[in-house]
Amino acid sequence: MNLTLKIWRQKDSKAKGQMVDYKVTDISEHMSFLEMMDVLNEQLVNSGEEPVAFDHDCREGICGMCSMYINGEAHGPDRGVTTCQLHMRMFKDGDTITIEPFRAAAFPVIKDLVVDRMAFERIQQAGGYISVNTSGNTQDANSIPISKHAADEAMDAATCIGCGACVASCKNSSAMLFVGAKVSQYALLPQGQVEAVDRVKNMVAQMDLEGFGNCTNTGACEVECPKGISLENIARMNREYLSATLKG
């Protein structure tokens, strides 16, 4: 298929960006979206132009590095996939595709489609851990039974890949699905209880400090999340937060 691409080009974080049109031809429907971008970039390199910078790494939907906003949707029109797993069979010959970076005040553009997600790092550093040193003397892994249900729910929350699609999809640029997932993982496990109060307070405080907006329950994040992280995690975080503030 032949396609027109409208791509956001921006030299660096200070430069003013703009949409630029490109044409690609003979795209196979079996290609992934990023392989289509490879074709474009090979074309640009061969004509001496600078290729489009975009984040990507594992190309199997798990590292969370890729972050394109395609035709107005984070990771494009398919559901339950990252950009690297989006396939060209979702598009038609002659289509015009608009490709932008994830947009949020807390995710400044570094170059073209590459954004800075350090805000997520700082939120994790504020409390996204259990304080246990490595010793080889922790108790046996089976000494605390955890119900299968709780373990499975914790796993569902922990499956977040930290890509930021939730933020990019939210009209408030809220990071509550991301933070809620981490808070939930630990809240559902006995190991997470000891630090539960401080964790949720610190992570939420950092989230606010980074300039992410609040949740107004539109649910766009859940729809666009490539890993299907559920809104329940936001509700659980709110409960944890409320109970933490009451505990002082």
């Binding site: 892994a141 039974p145 914790a154």
Partner: peptide, 25 residues
Amino acid sequence: EVSTNIIDQCVAQGVPFARDYGGLL
């Protein structure tokens, strides 16, 4: 020899390994 320590350490960190219905790994 140290393989068993890894599982203990990871569970203590909150790694949600699969469990059976009795709650064990």
